[in-house]
């Protein structure tokens, strides 16, 4: 089971790289924002799997809750700003 969790962690890291490609490459700024949103969801899952792997779930779950809430505030602020500013 431990080695299975390790494989999951590696696979999730590769998926993060795919989204990072979209963030760096994206033709418009909205692609970059969308890629960051996908990265944050993946990071939440990654944190919880990491908690299971290191057997400290109680700590990592709290971190991922905070990450989700901060992500909401940040993404809404960026979207609101871009809406007002228009396409760059």
């Amino acid at each position: 089971m431990k080695i299975f969790l390790l494989y999951i962690l590696v696979l999730l890291a590769i998926l993060l790289g795919v989204y990072l490609y979209r963030v760096l490459q994206g033709p418009t700024i909205f692609d970059r924002v969308l890629g960051l949103n996908g990265i944050s969801t993946k990071a939440i899952i990654l944190l919880i799997v990491m908690g299971i792997y290191f057997e400290r779930v109680d700590m990592f779950v709290d971190i991922s809750t905070g990450y989700a809430l901060l992500n909401l505030v940040g993404a809404l602020a960026v979207a609101k700003y871009l809406e007002r500013k228009g396409v760059p």
Binding site: T28, F30, V33, L34, L72, A75, A79, K80, E83
Partner: peptide, 10 residues
């Protein structure tokens, strides 16, 4: 909420 905000801004 985030998806809607991004798509609406786009």
């Amino acid at each position: 909420v985030i998806t809607h905000a991004t798509v609406r801004a786009a």
